[in-house]
């Protein structure tokens, strides 16, 4: 064991033994459980409360299918899921600086780069696990609620969101190094999200850059085709670059 692996172990244990195990997993699990049910029964709830003939409602809202359930999952991930991620990871580095724990760790044989890399790796793995688990729960819930749940659209959609989420994890790591305030970093992160959504109006950017991943989860969840190759490759490359930039910047900072 060296300093890096000891720090990786600390970071992973910290997830399990603090609020971190409750927030993102809790939000994702809640969406995974309620999504299929909401998709299945929303039209019936509307029928019950709307002052319209049933036929008119049926014309407006077609009978739900498993794709509505997948769409619900993709929508929840892309909006509240991503916002929660941005807020939670706004302090991924700055919180350790503020609490003074970074000083105790970084005056031992752990380089600043190793500190950043360990955090990015552990939380990337954590996100992968919780998105996978949430997707499996959504799939099971959809199968139970709708009787049929072909897995491909859901997997493609969840995979595209996971890559997008990892990009934002990398971005927040950099922002949390650059900005001492968690709220400040989260604000900038949400600003970047808004910019990507606006950039989605450009077809070229959507096809070839990470911009495409802001809309890909919903498109894929609806059963339509979306060419993921370039958006995914460019996102992975950008994620690596963002973490490298965070490590570089952190190495130059005084603590």
């Amino acid at each position: 064991m060296n300093g890096f692996t000891a720090f990786v172990r600390k970071e992973a244990t910290e997830i399990l033994r603090t609020w971190r195990i409750l927030v993102l997993p809790g939000i994702l699990l809640f969406f995974a459980i309620t999504g299929p049910v909401m998709a299945r029964f929303t039209p019936e709830i509307l029928k019950a409360v709307a002052d319209m003939p049933a036929a008119a409602i049926k014309a407006l809202i077609p009978d739900p299918t498993y794709l509505d359930s997948y769409g619900q999952w993709a929508k929840n991930l892309s909006q509240i899921g991503l916002f929660a991620l941005i807020i939670v990871y706004g302090g991924i580095v700055s919180s350790e600086r503020k609490s003074g724990t970074a000083v105790l760790v970084l005056t031992k044989p752990v380089s600043r780069s190793a500190f950043i890399a360990a955090k990015a790796l552990v939380h990337a793995a954590f996100l992968t696990v919780i998105v996978t688990a949430g997707t499996l729960v959504t799939w099971g819930g959809t199968a139970l609620t709708f009787g049929s749940a072909p897995v491909a659209p859901l997997l493609d959609s969840a995979f595209s969101w996971l890559v997008f989420a990892l990009l934002f994890l990398s971005l927040m790591t950099l922002l949390s190094v650059a900005l001492p305030s968690q709220a400040g970093a989260a604000g900038v992160g949400i600003g970047v999200y808004a910019l990507l959504a606006i950039a989605g109006l450009s077809k070229t950017l959507t096809l070839y850059t990470p911009v495409g991943l802001s809309s890909a989860p919903s498109v894929l969840a609806s059963g339509k085709h979306f060419a993921l190759l370039w958006p995914v490759l460019s996102s992975v490359a950008l994620s690596v670059a963002l973490v490298a930039a965070a490590a570089w910047l952190f190495s130059r900072q005084e603590l």
Partner: peptide
């Protein structure tokens, strides 16, 4: 070297034994 800053920051969720094991682990 060993270093103690003026206001040391610890991981509050650890016990003293866990923190010392963690600190030792950082030295390999």
């Amino acid at each position: 070297i060993g270093f103690l800053p003026d206001v040391p920051g610890f991981y509050d969720w650890m016990t003293a034994r866990e923190f010392l094991r963690f600190a030792g682990g950082l030295f390999g």
